[in-house]
């Protein structure tokens, strides 16, 4: 066997030798007889290593002593009693205390800030965005304006106005389609009521009237009070305004193409019947009946039967149900009607 001289360090770092040394120093509580036998045999077989082994054991002994001096060995039984005591006082599972660090705090603050801004922005928008009311075909809807004036909006129409009206500013509404207005008196001279319909600007001096803004023409029919109608100017500087003042029972019509206002006296009662969702035809040519249907019901009416166009009719019709209404009209004219979506054909 080749002889190899082990250094003290070699032995010191050897796990088995360490256990042997601790064992013969009498401080190992496990049985090391096997290991002890091995190292004693080894020392006998390699006498050249005996000195190193002795030195290593001595150093380990001294190290252990030095470490023991530094070791603090408390009373373990007392310590165990303390642990038991602490277990009793905290028997209920403790919930960890939630400690909010500044980062978490900032995060919450940011969320609150965003929420507040969202609320601010939405309420700002809420006050700013105008109200828009739409009606379906054949539906009349009564709208109460911020100043408690009422509007009966005819079918297939829309009305737009600001959510809040100041008492020193004009009350303005924008109309598409047809509506009947019952307007409250102005609180101040600046508090006038203005209807914008197509190119027409209708300024209310009194109370109730009827506005139709369809087929590139705007009609105003006045029931009571006084209304001024004028052409809305694109540039304020251009020409003198075209305008007319209506008296009760008068109807004014503004043609969008020509910009001319024509005036006539009409049968108030019949013309206002739509407010109760009734159509009144008094010796009316069918062409005009078709037009009324197109206007109020939002459908395209085609007349296939040529002689129908000139025939006249006198009737009161309920317009709540378009199909019933159409069959009713067809029966009156002794014709047939077909409806497919937005297209109505008489034949």
């Amino acid at each position: 066997m080749e002889k190899y001289r082990y250094s003290v360090e070699d032995l010191l770092v050897d796990a088995s030798f360490q256990r042997y040394a601790c064992g013969i120093l009498g401080e190992e509580d496990v049985d090391i007889s096997e290991i002890r036998q091995f190292w004693e045999d080894w020392c006998a077989q390699h006498p050249e290593n005996q000195a190193a082994a002795q030195e290593a054991i001595e150093l380990i002994k001294q190290l252990r002593q030095a470490e023991s001096y530094a070791a603090v060995v408390p009373d373990i039984d007392k310590s165990w009693q303390q642990v038991l005591k602490r277990l009793q006082t905290t028997r209920q599972p403790q919930k960890p205390l939630v400690t909010i660090g500044w980062r978490t705090y900032l995060r919450y603050a940011a969320v609150v800030f965003i929420l507040l801004s969202a609320i601010a922005a939405s309420s700002y928008l809420y006050f700013l965005v105008p109200i828009e009311v739409y009606t379906q075909i054949g539906e009349n809807r009564t709208v109460t304006l911020p100043d408690h004036s009422t509007v009966v909006l005819s079918g297939n129409s829309s009305l737009q106005y600001a959510r809040y009206w100041g008492s020193n500013r004009p009350r303005e509404v924008w109309l598409k389609g047809k509506a009947y207005f019952d307007v409250r008196h102005a609180i101040s001279p600046d508090n006038r009521f203005v209807v914008h319909a197509g190119k027409a600007r209708i300024e209310v001096l009194g109370t109730s009237f009827d506005v139709t803004n369809r087929n590139e023409a705007t009609k105003v029919l006045l029931k009571t009070g006084k209304v001024k109608m004028e052409v809305e100017q694109m540039q304020p500087s251009s020409q003198a305004t075209v305008s007319t003042v209506l008296m009760p029972g008068e109807e004014a019509e503004l043609s969008e193409k020509s910009g001319i206002i024509t005036k006539k006296v009409t049968d108030l009662e019949h013309s206002m019947n739509w407010v109760q969702q009734k159509f009144v035809f008094d010796n009316t040519p069918f062409e005009e009946v078709a037009k009324t249907i197109e206007e109020n019901c939002g459908v395209k009416v085609t007349i296939r039967k040529q002689d129908l166009r000139t025939r006249r009719i006198t009737a009161h019709l309920d317009a709540k149900n378009l199909d019933v209404f159409l069959t009713g009209v067809a029966r009156l004219f002794d014709a047939k009607v077909k409806r497919k979506g937005d297209s109505v054909v008489f034949y």
């Binding site: 530094a70 070791a71 603090v72 165990w80 642990v83 602490r86």
Partner: peptide, 28 residues
Amino acid sequence: LFKKLASKLYSYGYRIVPDRVVVEDAVQ
């Protein structure tokens, strides 16, 4: 387990923080 290891952990811990109270507290 406690009685087997506590004193060893105390000794080890005391070398990291030389404060009896802190180490005993930590082990417990």
